[in-house]
């Protein structure tokens, strides 16, 4: 069993109920029309792929269906913290 804490349900639940939706804190450019191709390309396609601490977006897909953020070590799978959308991570590399 690999348990993940859902900050909306307020309890640990089995990993099978969750989905990882990739890198967190990606802000959509406020004015896409004024972006260069490079800026837009970076926003659309380029993601970090660290070995170690990573801030990720997760969704409690089979539970409350809400999104939240996770700081996770990609090498050990250890979850360092879970925090709501709009909040900033406390654990940073």
């Amino acid at each position: 069993m690999f348990l993940i804490y859902c900050p909306h349900c307020g309890e640990y639940r089995e990993e099978e109920e969750f989905q990882n939706r990739g890198q967190a804190h990606i802000a959509r450019p406020l004015d896409p029309d004024s972006c260069t191709d490079e800026e837009w390309g970076n926003y659309m396609f380029f993601r970090k792929n660290p070995k170690g601490l990573h801030h990720e977006l997760w969704v409690h897909a089979a539970g409350c269906r809400k999104f939240f953020n996770v700081t996770r070590n990609t090498a050990t799978y250890e979850i360092k913290e879970v925090y709501k959308i709009g909040e900033q991570p406390k654990v940073v590399a």
């Binding site: 349900c9 639940r13 089995e14 099978e16 109920e17 089979a62 539970g63 409350c64 269906r65």
Partner: peptide
């Protein structure tokens, strides 16, 4: 009350 996976359904 919880919503969860149940027998490969929910």
């Amino acid at each position: 009350v919880v919503t969860s996976v149940f027998a490969k359904s929910s």
